[in-house]
Design a protein around this nucleic acid. Structure first.
Lengths: 248, 248
DNA sequence: CCAAAAGTGTTGGCGGTACACCCATGG
DNA sequence: CCATGGGTGTACCGCCAACACTTTTGG
């Protein structure tokens, strides 16, 4: 409030001067490596000033004729080859001064970032190394200092990921067609932490909902009883669509 | 996907041409008239082309040096005088062609809308009529065709309002300092519909949470037993902050 | 036979739903 | 004294956490 007031007093003659914007799209792309129980986020190394050589979220400026979502898909497609993914808009960061390319006290162009949140299937995601730029999956705990305000964006995305997992069936977009209940459980554990739920309770809750169907096929992983492979039944899920639903 | 592919093929030489943007902020401002049990949204009449004379959401273009949120507060302050309000970012709409000022097939400037969601206290909200432009509270069911894609934005905001009410204490930002439990119940009923919950259950659930304190003061509204006035105790609410919480 | 992993069952408590019922006031 | 709205109590059901237990495999 006080900020706004100050500004009005400071530049009373500039009241009508509209800012010009470049609009960027930045993606927070998550993936879960179930074999190692790690939650990963995709980072790339900046090739240009500012922040040359520093890690950041994959992003791009929006082109003519391109929608925001199109731009988000384009970045993604440039960085990884993947068939199954979930993507939605996250938040728009647009404060003045968030990009050093904005001259500090001039009325030059502003840089705005519309961020998108994505979750991809780790096993089938191929990173596209162009031989020039760095690109890597970073475990969420080991993310370094990022360029711009990207640490903030990432934090925001991480929050969203946890919510999505609890209240929507995103997990099934990111698991293989068939999976064991343990795979599913590991996914949840990796993202939400060890103590989110007991395995057997998680099991019965999910099965009672009725949209996971047992294929009958068994699969053995080393010692121990073989597990059933399940399939997500999109048909059976329809009644739950748009209803509040807890997967915890 | 196919859209993006087509575009790449259609304009291969334009690959690097970046769009220039004007960024607008549009507010979905809700208010609840508890005396008439109506959910209202603030609309203004457009004074300029395009869509001259048509109703739309109050909006503005972002000025130099102004953050998005500042712009949102500025619109609000230009249209209504109000002390208590809740405001948060809603969604960013930025597809090409959403504003007729974008020349249809040129590569001119694009118009992007960052929308904000607000809830204000009806009783204390004074509309600012400048004598020129139309401005009005519209019952949500009677909203006409709006300019641009504002009907879509409104729909999105309405959805958010219902979620917010169920999972967060926004209601207390918008009720008077002291209120009866029936006031609170009416607010919920007006927004969520009649059948969201039984009154007595709503009562006990809320009271059990312990952040509503009885002032002891009674108030009589016509016939019937007088009701207690309650106050929202922000201190007592702290432990629930950031915890999942259901107000249904 | 034992360890490991998958899967089933049981129990107690808490919380929601649907009511029935008492209380205080105006007319 | 009765209609009206405020407020309390109860009985049932379902859900969920915790944990014990059985089943099926590899070694």
């Amino acid at each position: 409030m006080s900020e706004r007031t100050t500004r009005k007093i400071a530049y009373p003659l500039k009241k009508q001067s509209l800012a010009d914007f470049k609009v960027g799209v930045d993606n927070v792309i998550f993936s879960v490596d179930t074999s190692q129980n790690r939650l990963l986020v995709l980072l790339v190394m900046r090739q240009d000033e500012p922040f040359l050589g520093q890690w950041c979220l994959p992003g791009t400026l929006v082109r003519n004729g391109e929608s925001l979502e199109d731009a988000a898909y384009r970045i993604l497609a440039e960085k990884i080859r993947v068939k199954n993914l979930y993507l939605e808009q996250l938040y728009t960061f647009g404060g003045p001064g968030r990009d050093p390319r904005e001259a500090p006290d001039s009325f030059g162009v502003r840089y705005l970032s519309v961020s998108y949140f994505a979750l991809v299937r780790f096993a089938e995601a191929e990173l596209i190394a162009d031989g020039v730029s760095g690109i890597a999956w970073y475990p969420i705990q080991q993310v370094p200092q990022l360029a711009f305000d990207h640490n903030k964006i990432l934090e925001y995305g991480y929050q969203r990921l946890r919510n999505k997992l609890e209240y929507s069936p995103v997990a099934f977009d990111v698991l293989p067609d068939v999976f064991t209940l343990n795979d599913l459980y590991q996914l949840y554990t990796t993202v939400l932490g060890e103590n989110f739920s007991d395995y057997s309770n998680f099991r019965s809750r999910l099965l009672k909902l009725g949209f996971l169907c047992d294929t009958g096929i068994k699969v053995s992983r080393g010692a121990g009883r073989p597990a059933s492979l399940y399939r997500f039944d999109a048909e059976a899920f329809v009644p739950f669509k748009d209803k509040p639903l807890v997967f915890i």
